[in-house]
Amino acid sequence: MDATERPVADLPAQRDGQEVIHLDRVEKVFEVRRRAGLLRREKREVRAVDGLSFSVGRGEVVGFVGPNGAGKSTTIKMLTGILTPSAGTLRVAGVEPARDRARLARRIGVVFGQRTTLWWDLPLLDSYQLIHRMYRVPDARYRENLDRCVELLGLGDLLDVPVRQLSLGQRMRGDIAAALLHDPEVLYLDEPTIGLDVVSKANVRHFLADLNAERGTTVLLTTHDLTDIEQLCRRVMVIDHGRLMYDGEVAGLHRIAEVERTLVVDLATEMAPIALESARTVKVEGPRQWLAFPAGQPAAPIVAEIAAGWPLVDLSLREPDIEDVISLMYAGRSAG
């Protein structure tokens, strides 16, 4: 199935027939005990997820964003079956995750950016061999998937390297490959580009886009980096305080809050604000200038233009953060 060819407007119809993830009024309540005196302890309920309902159709790539503590990770954990919901129903690939964790595990792939599924002390290939057995991937299929991942993620030279010696970006690519060797129908990615440099981020995004286009893998992507969303997803869900604040096209998010990247350039001398078609200069401070441009747009042409016309000394790129968007959303609501 080729997801990229499908117009966004078809989404609701597609959800009827082949939905892969379905949540209906899901809640997760944690009980937190707090000291309230010398011996007395106070019990307090924390609603990490509060009546969350959504569905994701087969082959969709959906961004799942929200600030820290919004309930994203709790939701992902319920979707993998690690946590049991306090209320509501939840189904992934026709399976109730918490009840049938082991069966679901064969059909999903998970990448937690801040954790690793790889064996720290052993060469990368050893981890893949274990996964091969763990998921009972047929030999030919395993070989095919491994070759593909090795080629597209550039793992060729790394297979014999112990995982502890890999850089963060290499480790992340290794982890993404590990999550895909058993042909999962659904892939959960929790901050897959966190801490990566610009080139590694771009590589990971390219790989995921290709994976979705060629294999039709459904992807649920949690991230802080809105550029990930801009470049990979057409649908985005924004969650805060355990509730869905926005669910729709990425383009729709722009109407609420213009998602922009910021280029910070250091010029050789103090100059008048840089005037460009593709970016607007938002701030000037001595020889340093800040230029904002839409996050969906590549930075390279803008950089080239500045380098050609101005005495450029140094530059850095600030990615838009979901916190910015959420605060704009709240601002928009209270104003309207």
Partner: peptide, 12 residues
């Protein structure tokens, strides 16, 4: 550390 989550979502 919470890394146990990784062990728990495996089919083992």
């Amino acid at each position: 550390s919470g890394d146990i989550a990784v062990d728990l979502y495996r089919p083992v």
